[in-house]
Nucleic acid binder design. Structure first.
Lengths: 136, 136
DNA sequence: GTTCATTTGCAACAGAGTTGCACACCATTT
DNA sequence: AAATGGTGTGCAACTCTGTTGCAAATGAAC
């Protein structure tokens, strides 16, 4: 519980129950979550709008990052300590076509790609879809 | 013009003016297009809903595929001849942070990634964001 | 405990995408 | 060329997702 407060403080955020609950939901469920997922869990306690704003704040402060698949937008915890200034974002995400869960594969790096002349890459995002170990 | 009819027929679709126009828009503009983009070009001639349904049909038949970036959903022509049964989708997309355009990099392959045990990949989607040659 | 800035809830709104239904159109048959 | 049947289109209404403005509530610092 204090862990939550620490994290929030570390990112220069006031501790509020909503923020604590959203953060702990991310920590407990390990996979990427959509706004709808969070609303499902916390919707009784907090307003839709508040959850949207919490996500937006977390994004800006570098606590979470966006995860995209063909179904839409989700969010996941940043592994490295991202901050407002510096986001680390060369992610590999694996989406299971069976259970629908999306997870960050933290330890992997995206292999170098030889881009055609003139392209100046800034960040990389690899989405792999398939079957996850749990569904195999 | 006959080219369009051929393509539609090849995917078992009736030729209608809307489908021809949507298809030729994709062929002329080479980058990925959102529903909104198409509505901007063709909205005077066709209903919003019709454009949605055309996109859905094209997706199902394998004429176009989804492209996602942090701003939302777009569509681009399938390079290979995809069909209803078989989509070929190991794509690299490059989104320019300057002009906002997203393009498929057709000729590149995604290098192999060493996945942890138990992960069974089916397809890969790499989104690279940065500056494109035109905006450099 | 008071204070002030920040956060929250509510209501209203905006945009994206969907559904049902009647009419129009395409391709096929005669 | 006209009739036919199945498919596609336009319209209206709706749902879902996300946003904005404002007043009331709350957190942190004094």
């Amino acid at each position: 519980m204090d862990q939550l407060r620490e994290t929030l403080k570390g990112h220069h955020l006031r501790t509020t129950t909503c923020r604590e609950d959203v953060l702990s939901t991310f920590i407990n469920k390990k996979n990427a979550l959509s706004h709808g997922d969070l609303e499902g869990v916390l919707g009784e306690n907090y307003d839709r709008v508040t959850i949207y704003r919490t996500l937006k704040t977390f994004l800006e402060k570098g606590i979470i990052h966006k995860v995209l698949d063909d179904e839409g937008l989700r969010y996941a915890l940043c592994s490295q300590n991202c901050s407002e200034e510096k986001h680390h974002h060369d992610h590999i995400h694996f989406k299971c076509n069976e259970c629908g869960e999306t997870n960050c594969l933290e330890n992997l790096h995206i292999p170098a790609v030889q881009l055609p002349k003139g392209y100046q890459p800034e960040n990389f995002n690899l989405l792999i879809q398939g079957i996850c170990p749990n569904c195999k």
